[in-house]
């Protein structure tokens, strides 16, 4: 019974914990803030779906998501809410200026379009996306933006701030297009400040955009040394078919080589790893030749793990059946022996 109450308290603690953290002091001047309030249940384990609108729908589908807008500018503000077109250019998710339109923004509606927020206040808005029945397949990009304009009465430059939630909407058949990527080469180099850097060329071989994150480990180095893992720099968003570099900056103490470098990259729940033997150049600003990377078996891919686990469980069942069969037979033999 005591354990039961401890469990109840633990659950309450989990529920109350985040709520208590949301009450911030009035001195918070983080400005205009936005956050996504809901995500689709089937993407519960996808970290991208927790902060972006990432979805795959069929033509004719309607979906809606809520966003919360917070005014921490320190004064009352009129906040405009609208969708704006975005592009994936040079490995970045880029929102176009103003209320730039594309096909996706034409399907989007933000309600209400303006919010008058007192200092410290927050409000919820709904983003509805109605995909026309004749919409073509493919992925489209936009952002739901909240905007505060500076006072434009004074001559000079007016500053406008916008903050948004990215939208990656894929339209197509009942089955979501495959997401995949490959790490083709690893290149060791040394930055102008002398810190070693590994640059990986990553190609999006799937049909959806990818937001790259991950880490690099070094093993089998000089004298058997190992180092890492070092986090990969974020900010690379790959369009389908695009190849872009992903950088990992290492500790200045890492020198020479050869090292066996293993790079693990992921986008959402998709994970791929590759390894190559690299040697760091001695001088700042230098780069070694890129080395072809070899894919490392996907030990953490659910598409591999689940059938593997299923197979193992099946094998255990077979062994159990065999043991039971043998036991039964022995029992029968013993019974027969006893009967004689």
């Amino acid at each position: 019974m005591g354990l039961f109450w401890i469990a109840i308290l633990a659950v309450l603690g989990l529920v109350l914990g985040p709520a208590a953290a949301q009450t911030r002091p009035d001195t918070d001047r983080s400005g205009l803030g936005i956050r996504l309030l809901d995500a689709p249940t089937e993407r519960r384990d996808d970290p991208r779906a927790q902060v972006y609108v990432v979805d795959h729908v069929q033509p004719g589908a309607k979906l809606s998501r809520r966003v919360e807008v917070v005014n921490r500018t320190g004064r009352a503000a009129r906040v405009s809410l609208y969708p704006a077109a975005a592009e994936l250019t040079a490995g970045s998710f880029q929102v176009l200026p103003g209320a730039a339109a594309n096909e996706l923004t034409g399907w989007m509606r933000v309600s209400p379009p303006t919010l008058d927020l007192a200092s410290g206040a927050s409000a919820t808005a709904t983003v509805s996306i109605a995909v026309p029945a004749d919409a073509g397949g493919g992925e489209r990009y936009a952002a739901v933006l909240a905007e505060v304009q500076g006072a434009s009465d004074a001559p000079g430059i007016t500053i406008t701030n916008r903050v948004g939630v990215r939208v990656y909407l894929s339209v197509g058949g009942p089955k979501e297009p495959v997401s995949d990527f490959e790490i083709s080469t690893l290149q060791a180099g040394r930055q102008a400040d002398g810190r070693p850097v590994v640059t990986a060329q990553v190609r999006n071989t799937g049909a959806r955009a990818l937001d790259m994150s991950g880490a690099l480990s070094l093993t089998q180095g000089p004298g058997g040394l190992s180092a890492g893992p070092f986090p990969a720099e974020l900010g690379t968003t790959l369009a389908p078919g695009e190849t872009s570099p992903v950088q990992v900056v290492l500790d200045a103490a890492i020198r020479g080589g050869p090292w066996l470098a293993t790079l693990t990259l992921r986008s959402g729940q998709l994970e791929r790893a590759a390894e190559a033997t690299i040697t760091f150049p001695d001088d700042a600003g230098q780069r070694a030749e890129p080395v072809a990377a070899k894919a490392v078996p996907l030990t953490q891919d659910p598409n591999v793990l689940i059938p593997l686990a299923g197979g193992l469980i099946g094998l255990i069942l077979l062994v159990l059946l065999f043991l039971l069969y043998r036991r039964r037979r022995r029992d029968r033999e013993e019974d027969a022996a006893a009967a004689q």
Binding site: I34, P40, N161
Partner: peptide, 20 residues
């Protein structure tokens, strides 16, 4: 399935020291 669940992530914000 188009059901959704509540997300617990915090906000992303931008502030300027002045508006002009």
């Amino acid at each position: 399935v188009t059901t959704t669940f509540a997300v617990e992530a915090g906000t992303l914000s931008i502030a300027s020291a002045a508006t002009t």
